[in-house]
Nucleic acid binder design. Sequence first.
DNA 1: AATTAAATTTAGACAAAGCTAAATAATAAA
DNA 2: TTTATTATTTAGCTTTGTCTAAATTTAATT
Lengths: 219, 219
Amino acid sequence: MNLTVAEENYVKAIYKLQEGDQAVTTNALAYELDTKPASVTDMAKKLKEKKLIDYEKYQGITLTPEGRKTALQIVRRHRLWECFLVDKLSFSWEEVHELAEELEHVRSEKLINRLSDFLGNPVIDPHGDPIPDAHGRMAKPRPQTPLDQANAKRLVVTAVSDQSTALLAFLNAKGIKLGTQLEIVAHYEFDNSIEIKMKHLPSLTISEQVAKNIMVRPL
Amino acid sequence: MNLTVAEENYVKAIYKLQEGDQAVTTNALAYELDTKPASVTDMAKKLKEKKLIDYEKYQGITLTPEGRKTALQIVRRHRLWECFLVDKLSFSWEEVHELAEELEHVRSEKLINRLSDFLGNPVIDPHGDPIPDAHGRMAKPRPQTPLDQANAKRLVVTAVSDQSTALLAFLNAKGIKLGTQLEIVAHYEFDNSIEIKMKHLPSLTISEQVAKNIMVRPL
DNA sequence: AATTAAATTTAGACAAAGCTAAATAATAAA
DNA sequence: TTTATTATTTAGCTTTGTCTAAATTTAATT
Ligand SMILES: [Mn+2]
Ligand SMILES: [Mn+2]
Ligand SMILES: [Mn+2]
Ligand SMILES: [Mn+2]
């Protein structure tokens, strides 16, 4: 099926919001895509027509199996381009999302498979997110939790769930990246901030907001 | 100025057709872009509004200096992506044009300059066409002529002027590529076909059509 | 110079993707 | 269970880029 760029962006956004299998709401999708609910309703009708989503008035949106397959292809392209930009062109992780948002729409199986080979068939992208293979399968991520809910003391950073430039730039400034090892020094109940310690660095206190978006697993 | 993909394709096509400085006709542009003359007229009005072209009814189209600058940026992106695809992803020269046609529309100075560095700042693309630098300057190509007009006997292939898959595939089949050295054995007046000889290979006769599109210079 | 042919433009329509404002449905509060 | 609030949809309009058919201009031929 031949999708427009807009349709691809919708399908990917629905995939992202559809954690598990609960329906995605019109408003949530509008917010995610920085558009208006009325526009989402319009597009929902088109995507239903193309059998990429299940949609009934007022009932929210879910991807069909076909839609999910499509979404995974787009996610694959997005994440592989991110890897390319970071690994080969030396971009930093907060710069690549925007560019990948455009590169992901160049549709060519051959291109993307060769790109994957060229990169050594990576399985996670620069933000720690898994990359679907050519068949849409991804390594199920090793168990990870947001830093604010971690119970172990010694942890390693495995991903960032919010990928805004603002958060990533903050983490850069503090020297936190994928693979960074850290120790929880204290929880402060007042604002749920967390004090952490990385090797060779003075300890540092981060807000709950930040902690929620750093994914970790026990070391 | 922020151009749409369609506008970029028009500007690039006008640049391509505007050999020297003669105006590009509506019909020629429509044919080049595989669209209809009426659509070209519509777009001409928009591009004039954006000061990218000079255009008066019935008088044809020429790029303004601003338009030429824009065109050179697009050409730069196109040709650098072609280099990437051939040099890094092992595509062959007849496969890359289509893909570059899409990749060229990802607008990022930083991306394209890093890509250029990554590729070693190449100055010609896989078809022998010069690549504009970041300032829009290109090495003026060494003098070259179409094979059908060459007077020297021993020649080297420097570029292909028609880049259709059909021609490139034909050249592949015959073992002709950039840098190939050949000798003219005979001209046949009947159909202007040309017999050529490459080292270690039996001689071979090519049509005028083909010869017109192989650019060569004396060895 | 008049006529024919070719090139170009205009008029009117359509599909895609978006918007605002108004209407309707679903949910939450009183 | 009414009432108020929030979520969603509908209606109508806009922009971009395309098309066909008709009109007009320019160029080429008698
Ligand atoms: Mn995108
Ligand atoms: Mn990512
Ligand atoms: Mn293009
Ligand atoms: Mn080329």
